[in-house]
């Protein structure tokens, strides 16, 4: 089913089967994967569509039963002031934690690839462990530390927690980019009279930039959607996911669907714009070249 091309070659080369039979089997096999993929995508998108549709529900308190179409919730999101406050907190936390984690993680990634030092494997382990640790453990651990130290939980503790779990992801993302760099490029920079400093800022850094941006976007997405770790370290501060968790029992207001849908479409538009601009660039390259 999956090895269409391989099989066609083998048939042609080794034991030519009657063409009609081969054609028939090929015809079926050819469509199995695309159809499967289409169904899989529909499955993946169902809850998103549901959330989007119910952002137009003229709900009163809980947003479970369809009560009619309205734009009200989109126009007056902040009527549910708690949703807006929670959303604002999530933005502040996401942006702050992203900046901190991207700086810390990029520095580590560069050090890991470009320099050699002792305790290298210990450091790799320290970077790997946060990703291999379940979020409950990370959350409970930090909460236990804050409890022991008598730190008041709030926005600050959430930012600390988010920065912590984002650093490792930044390191991995940037490191991947660093290791795909052709070392000959930096050698060429040195060969062409660039001092180590100049080579870094004029050759290495610009080439790393896409990786750094990707790492920052990943950090923001992780932070924005995090609930488990936040829940342990938020105290009374609300974030968007925490708000949903707390209201889940009594029903989510449609305003939450509005914000989630808006964020979704914003993200999708950003991603598509990036895709299309790179496709256009590729096409232009192809045309000129």
């Amino acid at each position: 089913m999956t090895l269409q091309e391989g099989r066609v070659v083998s048939r042609a080369v080794t034991r030519p089967a009657p063409p009609s039979r081969r054609g028939a089997r090929l015809g079926v096999g050819k469509w199995v994967l695309p159809i499967y993929a289409a169904i899989a995508f529909v499955f993946l998108l169902i809850p998103i569509a549901y959330t989007f549709v119910f952002s137009f529900n003229d709900s009163v308190k809980s947003n479970i039963v369809w009560r009619g179409f309205t734009f009200d919730k989109w126009l007056n999101v902040c009527d549910q002031i708690d949703v807006c406050v929670a959303f604002g907190n999530s933005l502040i936390i996401g942006i702050t934690a992203t900046i901190a984690a991207t700086i810390l993680g990029t520095m580590i990634a560069i050090a890991l690839v470009r320099y050699r030092f002792r305790f290298r494997s210990a450091i790799s382990l320290l970077l790997f462990l946060p990703m291999a640790t379940p979020e409950v453990v990370l959350g409970a651990g930090l909460a236990a530390e804050f409890l022991g130290a008598g730190v008041q939980k709030g926005l600050g503790t959430i930012i600390i927690a988010h920065t912590m779990f984002c650093v490792s992801f930044v390191v991995v993302t940037v490191k991947a980019r660093v290791s795909t760099l052709d070392p000959a490029l930096e050698e060429a920079g040195r060969d062409l009279y660039g001092s180590p400093n100049q080579v870094f800022w004029r050759v290495t850094f610009p080439l790393l930039l896409p990786g750094i941006i990707a790492a920052a976007l990943l950090s923001f997405a992780l932070s924005f959607d995090d609930f488990i770790i936040t829940n342990f370290n938020a105290g009374t501060t609300s974030t968007f996911p925490k708000y949903i968790y707390i209201s889940a029992a009594r029903g989510i207001p449609a305003e939450a669907n509005v914000i989630a849908s808006a964020v979704f479409f914003l993200a999708i538009i950003l991603v598509l714009a990036a895709q299309i601009s790179s496709a256009v660039k590729r096409k232009r390259l192809a045309k000129v070249g």
Partner: peptide, 24 residues
Amino acid sequence: LMLVLVIAPFFISFLLRTLAWKSI
């Protein structure tokens, strides 16, 4: 585009997705 579809669920709250399934 298909990759975007795969990661699309990331762009909407984890909790809302799960609640959506609960209703569906």
